[in-house]
């Protein structure tokens, strides 16, 4: 039950080395061992997407991943979006604020991490492409319309920033 294993990984640019139980989920590791509480847990069975993080640049469900599987990985969580020094919001975060893309905000980190991956791969997505990308994230509050608006706004902002 309590086989322990040492893992080394990078989270939001910071290296960590920790001894963990083999059965510890990556979500619990990030939340309760690293105290990065922004990765939320809504179902623990891979459906809601609240726990979405990036592992080596690809979106993944932290609840369905074991911490030991992340040995050697480079992980980004919602805490990695905001500018660490200035506290300035990432354009995706800013877009969610301005387009009212959240209500309770519990699903939002997952949506933003999915958006980060999408806009990295496809800077100018169509609505259908946005929906396709966000189809694995549940939001019980917003009815998704303002989330769609938020992602469109984020795409515009990021594009004009990279054009400038």
């Amino acid at each position: 039950m309590s086989t322990r294993q040492t893992i080394r990984l990078t989270v939001n640019g910071k290296p960590y080395e920790r001894e963990v139980e083999a059965r510890l989920t990556l979500a619990d590791f990030i939340r309760h061992e690293l105290h990065l509480g922004g990765t939320h847990v809504g179902c623990e069975h891979g459906i809601c997407g609240a726990c979405t993080i990036l592992i080596d640049g690809s979106s993944a469900r932290a609840c369905l991943t074991l911490a030991v599987q992340a040995d050697g990985a480079n992980i980004t969580t919602v805490e990695g979006l905001r500018n660490r020094e200035t506290g300035q919001l990432h354009p995706i975060q800013q877009a969610f604020v301005e387009a009212h893309g959240l209500q309770c905000g519990f699903c939002t980190p997952g949506f933003m991490m999915t958006t980060l991956e999408l806009l990295g791969e496809n800077p100018d997505p169509s609505d259908d492409e946005i929906k396709e990308a966000l189809g694995g994230n549940l939001c019980r509050c917003t009815g998704y319309q303002s989330i769609l608006d938020s992602v469109r706004l984020a795409a515009r902002r990021l594009q004009s920033a990279s054009a400038a």
């Binding site: 979006l81 309770c104 905000g105 980190p109």
Partner: peptide, 22 residues
């Protein structure tokens, strides 16, 4: 339509939902 005062913390992942407290 004003930006919500609750949102900067919510999008930053720093709001203390109960499971974040120990």
């Amino acid at each position: 339509t004003v930006n919500r005062i609750e949102d900067p913390a919510l999008v930053s992942g720093t709001v203390e939902f109960i499971d974040n407290l120990s």
